[in-house]
């Protein structure tokens, strides 16, 4: 059962990646320029998913949208992991009061979800893909700190780390040689789950007009555009939503599946 979850997740994620890669070399129509195609055409041929209010092929936009979603996800999760993992190891290393203070700060950070931070930053710097990625990345750091610290604490308490410390191995060396390899799977699971959340956040921001700019196709903005024509052409609101849900489901399933696959202890007793 759990194995099936992982496989379905991997297939969905592979599908999104494939769509994104495909969009670099081929889209059935120009995904950005105004075409000569009829506007708001229903699904059919040659526009398999129809066209939007500008007469642009929806399927082409979905393909390129996958690129936007993955782009934001990779950068945001990258920022979060690059900052969060070292901080998490540090928090595990710090004396009690230091770690305590740091985790309190992490608690406060949970009051700033990605979207709120992104809205705040958009107000200051203006809306852009970069602002959105930065905000989602920063807001995701606490999750990585927590996971890393929990994992690092148990590694640091192990005998071989004690032995390494006793023999005078410098702290950064221990962190890279012993701690990182042993918490890699935890970070991997977190990355997958955070990726799903990043895609959701990016979609919401683009829908609000605070993420990916109008010139670049993104699933969230497509939904925003589709809502305008919901009364007359509801079909256009279906495809981008399915794409978002599929991608998010995929990354969530991979995260869950990996967790159970890598750490049998966490599996519930049957």
């Amino acid at each position: 059962m759990k194995r099936a979850e992982l496989w379905i997740g991997l297939v969905l994620v592979a599908g999104v990646v494939a769509l994104a890669l495909l969009s670099f070399v081929w889209t059935p129509f120009n995904p950005t320029g105004v075409g000569s195609a009829p506007r708001l055409a229903p699904p059919g041929w040659p526009h398999v998913l129809g066209t939007d209010h500008m007469g642009i092929d929806t399927f082409s936009r979905i393909l390129v949208g996958a690129r936007s979603a993955l782009y934001v996800g990779i950068i945001a999760v990258g920022i979060a992991a690059l900052v969060g993992v070292p901080l998490g190891i540090l928090a595990a290393w710090l004396p009690r009061w230091g770690a305590e203070g740091m985790m309190r700060a992490v608690d406060v950070a949970y009051a700033f979800p990605a979207l709120l931070l992104a809205i705040l930053l958009a107000g200051v710097f203006g809306a852009s893909t970069e602002t959105a990625m930065l905000a989602i990345g920063i807001a995701t750091i606490p999750a990585f700190i927590r996971v890393t610290r929990a994992g690092a604490l148990s590694v640091l308490a192990s005998d071989y780390v004690l032995a390494a410390r006793a023999s005078g191995t410098p702290v950064p060396v221990i962190a890279v040689r012993h701690v990182l390899p042993n918490i890699a799977h935890l970070v991997g699971v977190q990355a997958s789950v955070s990726f799903a959340m990043a895609i959701l956040a990016e979609a919401a921001l683009s829908y609000l007009g605070l993420g990916t700019p109008p010139t670049v196709p993104s699933w969230g903005r497509m939904l925003g555009d589709a809502q305008t024509y919901l009364f007359s052409h509801p079909g256009q609101a279906v495809w981008p939503g399915l794409a978002i849900a599929g991608a998010v489901l995929g990354f969530n399933l991979v995260g869950d599946g990996l967790r159970d696959f890598l750490d049998p202890k966490l599996q519930e007793v049957s």
């Binding site: 979609a203 829908y207 919901l230 609101a237 939503g241 978002i244 849900a245 489901l249 969530n252 399933l253």
Partner: peptide
């Protein structure tokens, strides 16, 4: 699991 993947604003639009 599926519900978690649905953006609330899409659910709203539908």
């Amino acid at each position: 699991q599926v519900g978690m993947a649905v953006p609330a604003f899409w659910a709203g639009i539908l």
